[in-house]
Design a binder for these strands. Structure first.
Lengths: 233, 233
DNA sequence: CCAAAAGCAAGAGCACCGCTCTCGTTTTGT
DNA sequence: ACAAAACGAGAGCGGTGCTCTTGCTTTTGG
């Protein structure tokens, strides 16, 4: 076979490093991820890795972006699987369970995304976009629920302070959503991720005996509170 | 002054190490906490520290316990500050805002408790007790709300699976609480910690423009959903 | 009371880490 | 054809957690 061109080799090495890094992340977690160990596994000396990633943090950032994309893929795929002619309640449940399912299947990656931020790390713009795909799934459903005229559970009036606080959300909406409904959806967002984090990080230990059942109950309640109707009206 | 007895010296050194460790934790976070650096600051050689804490993880565990106690103190103090003749809604708000306030004031400690678990770390029983004080505050309010007969927002029926899943909660209750109310309170718990974690770990960046206002709105909505009445009936 | 035991601090040392720099070699673009 | 750029290897720096040995001091038991 012909020798690899420099560009090909670079692409392949980069991928190999990322593959091993992802595997190591899944095994030992982000804190124990070692550039030297990755170099060994990929057949390089440690300093050579720095030709591809300028620092351990940059490598971790790449893994964070990857993880966001994976989670976003899982979420969108789950929603797409039930999209056509499916009511919003089922789509919301699909999204929520996709998030939890992915988190349980990839605990270290989830912790990397939603656990304590890595010390020296500040989110680059690339991760912001990826992260937007997750919240985007919620926002899309919220908008559709608004146009469908779903009647969510009674919500407190929204004062001017909170109205202003929500100012960062509105630009992301193509269809306007009432402040009250926005608050309810943000709460659902917090509840889902709060539940998953508390479960995954061990804070429900000895309290909840059946995580699956309880999450089902919680998401069901969220569907009710959001006023997502099972049939289409 | 008389020379310190061995026991006195040991207690003092242990405290000095913990003090410096806590300070370092607050400054650089748990991942960058260094036994050698602590030893330097406390005027010891690194190996001497191991006479007091057998490993870095044990030292971190001690800090976790301390942090739990601190948070629990803050929560109970906040609740006690408004306890007498105060309605449940204000007490719940006091608890929720105490949690968030403490988290904002001690972000690294909060991350240590509710962020990604430290890799090699498994919670010893001592931390379980401390953690129980936090959830205990919620459970106490839930019980009082039950005996007060508060009417929470409509809740889905609880099937046998979820009833069994809640089996770990009931033993911790002195006064029985209905399954539906228990679910609502667990959801409030997830929402509060979910919100704080999402806020603190940067996931609301560019979305929510005023965290204080939004948290106020969310906790107010939780009060309503839990049916906590402002006046006493 | 005094020797044995136990506790303590220090230092050297091991294996690892992230990262930098230099030095030949190979590929690239002109 | 040749200079420039990219690359891999190796040595090395300063740091880490942790262990072990060596002396010294305090406590303890006969």
């Amino acid at each position: 076979m012909p020798p690899l061109s420099r560009a090909e080799n670079r692409a392949e090495q980069t991928r190999a490093i990322l593959d091993r890094a992802r595997a190591q992340l899944a095994e030992v977690g982000p804190a124990a991820l070692s550039v030297r160990q990755i170099a060994r596994e990929v057949g390089l000396v440690s300093s050579a890795v720095y030709r591809y990633f300028p620092s351990r943090d940059e490598l971790l950032t790449a893994l964070i972006v990857e993880a966001y994309e994976e989670l976003a893929d899982a979420v969108e795929e789950a929603e797409a699987g039930v999209r056509r002619r499916t009511a919003l309640d089922k789509r919301f449940l699909a999204v929520a369970h996709a998030i939890r399912g992915w988190a349980l299947a990839h605990p270290h990656q989830y912790a990397l995304l939603y656990g304590s931020p890595v010390p020296g790390y500040v989110a680059p713009d690339t991760t912001v976009n990826s992260a937007g795909r997750i919240s985007g799934a919620f926002l899309r459903l919220a908008q559709e629920s608004e146009v469908a005229g779903d009647e969510h559970a009674p919500a407190l009036p929204v004062g001017t302070a909170e109205h202003r606080a929500l100012g960062g959300i509105r630009p992301a909406l193509e269809t306007p959503v009432s402040d009250q409904r926005t608050v309810r959806w943000l709460m659902a967002w917090s509840t889902v991720f709060g539940h998953v984090s508390l479960e995954l990080f061990g804070h429900m230990h000895r309290g909840i005996l059946d995580y699956d059942a309880h999450f089902k109950q919680v998401t069901g309640q969220l569907v009710a509170d959001l006023g997502l109707r099972p049939a289409r009206g």
